[in-house]
Design a binder for these strands. Structure first.
Lengths: 190, 190
DNA sequence: ATACATACTTACTAATCAGTAAGTATTTCC
DNA sequence: GGAAATACTTACTGATTAGTAAGTATGTAT
């Protein structure tokens, strides 16, 4: 068949991400993906032999995307406030879709994952925290952002607020997430 | 057999909690529980007919415990700082055991849960946030704690730091969690 | 044109999952 | 001592799980 050469692989990655963010890693099956894409489960296994290969692929995709974003953020022309809001808006988008942060979702099942996936997850988190840390440090230096903690600790405080904020919002409602974001910006932006 | 009348039910609740915090709700089975307790899986079904009944039981147990803690916290003799540290130490204990917050873990699988469990989860979160909010408001009034946000928003910021902090710590190491806690206390305690 | 790689489908399998019906031992109440 | 409730075990079931081996259609390079 193969109407479009390799779109299927991209679609599997997209759906897998959606399922993890919506239902959790151990709550969806290859059958869920194959039904949605109108293919057979063996087709999913063709692209990703095991479920952990799919998760590894999804995390790898995230790593590439965040490397790209980090590159974009290297541009000093973009204001630190704008970069900060760009990060926040990613979580707001998740919230609007009733999804949660991929890392936060996978974290719940962390101890069921093979070492190769654990290593990728560690890399992804390091990448994200490092990027945010840089934005914060730069923003403070330029007088656009203010905080008393170290940039490293502040990046963790900020990202835990956002990650658990969307988790909270899914249960208690979006206005809680909005309140968190407003408070973060009020404290952080000069 | 029934050597000890109803210890089994308590043990199932205890193990279920441990599994959720360690591996995730959709990652453990009744077989895991029955093997560990050296009983048959039907015995687990006897106490909790369905897996969602077990989860409901676990959440109910948490609700009762937090109601007790809230009662203890009603004592004005205990300092607000001590109450705050008591809350933080609960999360530190999870961190030490390589576990994560029950709510945070279940949240990943939230959309796979029946409405009855969702409602219980909402109640539990309301209870915890309400309790923390009270501690913060009281602490500020007594001049023991300081923050510029509303007590409500600050309670959410604090709890999201702690909940996602233990999630983060399991992946990147405990020192990140320690840094978060130290920062929280430094900011909050007068 | 043909060989080969890609991208699947067909048709399974073995294991595990939650869940149940029926039987049994033990304790408790009267 | 008999009835009933409690706390299980035995012995299953049907559905779903991840995963595979073998076959097929389609495009590509020579």
């Amino acid at each position: 068949m193969a109407v479009r050469p390799t779109d299927t692989k991209e679609e599997i990655l997209r759906l897998g991400t959606e399922f993890i963010q919506t239902y959790g890693y151990n709550a969806f099956s290859y059958a869920d993906i194959s039904k949605e894409l109108h293919i057979k489960n063996a087709a999913v296994h063709y692209h990703f032999p095991g479920k952990e290969d799919l998760l590894a692929g999804i995390i790898d995709q995230y790593i590439l995307r965040y490397r790209e974003l980090a590159k974009t953020f290297a541009n000093p022309g973009i204001s630190s406030k704008h970069k900060l809001q760009s990060i926040i808006s990613r979580y707001s988008a998740l919230c609007d879709q009733g999804r949660i942060c991929l890392i936060g979702s996978v974290c719940a099942d962390y101890n069921t994952l093979p070492d190769s996936v654990k290593a990728r997850l560690t890399e992804l988190i390091g990448l994200v925290l490092g990027m945010v840390e840089k934005v914060l440090r730069e923003g403070k230096k330029k007088g656009e952002l203010q905080f008393t903690e170290t940039a490293r600790v502040k990046s963790m405080l900020l990202m835990t607020n956002l990650a658990a904020g969307v988790q909270l919002a899914r249960i208690t409602g979006q206005k809680d997430y909005t309140a968190i974001c407003n408070s973060i910006l009020k404290q952080l932006v000069v």
